[in-house]
């Protein structure tokens, strides 16, 4: 069925694209993918439902023009189910880990890696193609789901999104892809390091749990322990900055800050604001460009973390001895 997509149109394709085609076809045909997609689709429908049932209260009384009602589809909830944005930040890692945890180790265990590497291709082609193929599948999936939610929302509430809202949406989806890409590179790193797919999956899940459960706990502990004795404004402010920067070591914190800013235009700053800074400010939402500027450090941080993980797995893979099945 997928043969049509896999078959290259050109006379001979570069081995890299041949591998990307094959990897994508493998992903699409696998049970794992079906499971991941059904979880995500259920999530979308669930969060859309809760958003729609509460969106009436979210309409501001004074004016509807600049309220970004459409974006609220992704951020509000009635309390029974988390909103779409929270779901993505929670399930994104699962998607990334699920797509990559056996990328290299399965080839090794099946004994296909040495056969693959004896074909006329460079060794890095293998790992690059695996990463790119999974990334393409993830992008298509997330964008499709995002637009699906938008379309359903459009039908349900009947208010079309403004171009700015659309821009924010697309950027949010691109951010989600970047976030999942980070977890994908983490899991590829583990699949290169560990021979057993189960070990690698477990390691990926452990890192995920660490950042989503224990890391905030650790940050809170540190905050309590290092709280300044003298409560001068400077002390409190610098302590707040320190704690915030500490929590930003976690990729999920970076992601949630970036997405909240993108989908809630009224967010004006990601750090503490003093009264002097707020005094005189017009209480209006930030324009798209300014929101983008605000989250730029977070985006760069996520990109850097992804690049570091991928580089580590790249180096590890290039140095590994390739023998059959061991």
């Amino acid at each position: 069925m997928f043969d049509r997509f896999v078959r290259p149109r050109a006379e001979s394709l570069h081995p890299f694209w041949v591998m990307v085609h094959k990897e994508m076809a493998d992903h699409l045909r696998s049970w794992r993918f079906v499971i991941l997609v059904s979880i995500l689709v259920l999530t979308c429908i669930g969060s859309l439902y809760t958003a729609l049932s509460t969106i009436r209260e979210a309409v501001p009384k004074q004016d509807g023009g600049a309220s970004f009602l459409f974006l609220k589809l992704f951020t509000i909830s009635d309390g029974t189910l988390p909103p779409f944005i929270t779901f993505v930040s929670f399930l994104g890692p699962l998607l990334g880990i699920g797509m990559g945890f056996d990328a290299i180790s399965s080839e090794r265990n099946k004994g296909t890696l040495s056969r693959l590497l004896s074909q006329p291709l460079h060794r890095d082609t293998v790992i690059n193609a695996k990463f790119v193929a999974a990334l393409i599948v993830i992008s298509v999936l997330l964008f499709a789901l995002g637009f699906l939610v938008m379309g359903l929302g459009l039908i349900a509430i009947g208010i079309p999104p403004t171009p700015e809202e659309l821009g924010r949406m697309v950027f949010f989806l691109a951010l989600s892809v970047l976030y999942v890409a980070f977890w994908l590179s983490v899991s590829i790193l583990f699949s290169t390091r560990f021979r057993q797919a189960a070990t690698s999956a477990l390691a990926g899940i452990a890192v995920w749990l660490f950042f989503s459960v224990f890391f905030p706990l650790l940050v809170n502990l540190t905050a309590a322990a290092t709280a300044p004795a003298a409560q001068t404004p400077e002390n409190v402010l610098s302590h707040q900055q320190f704690i915030l920067n500490l929590s930003r070591l976690s990729p999920s914190q970076l992601f949630s800050e970036a997405t909240t800013t993108m989908l809630t235009p009224s967010v004006r700053s990601l750090g503490p604001l003093t009264m002097e800074q707020i005094y005189g400010a017009i209480p209006s939402p930030l324009p798209f460009g300014q929101s983008l500027l605000l989250v730029w450090p977070q985006v760069t941080g996520l990109l850097a973390a992804t690049a570091v993980c991928f580089a580590a797995s790249y180096v590890l893979f290039m140095r590994q001895e390739v023998r059959s099945r061991n």
């Binding site: 099946k110 004994g111 296909t112 040495s114 056969r115 004896s118 059959s324 099945r325």
Partner: peptide
Amino acid sequence: GYLPDDVGFYDD
């Protein structure tokens, strides 16, 4: 051409 010992194929 190289045939490793215990060669593997994509099972599916």
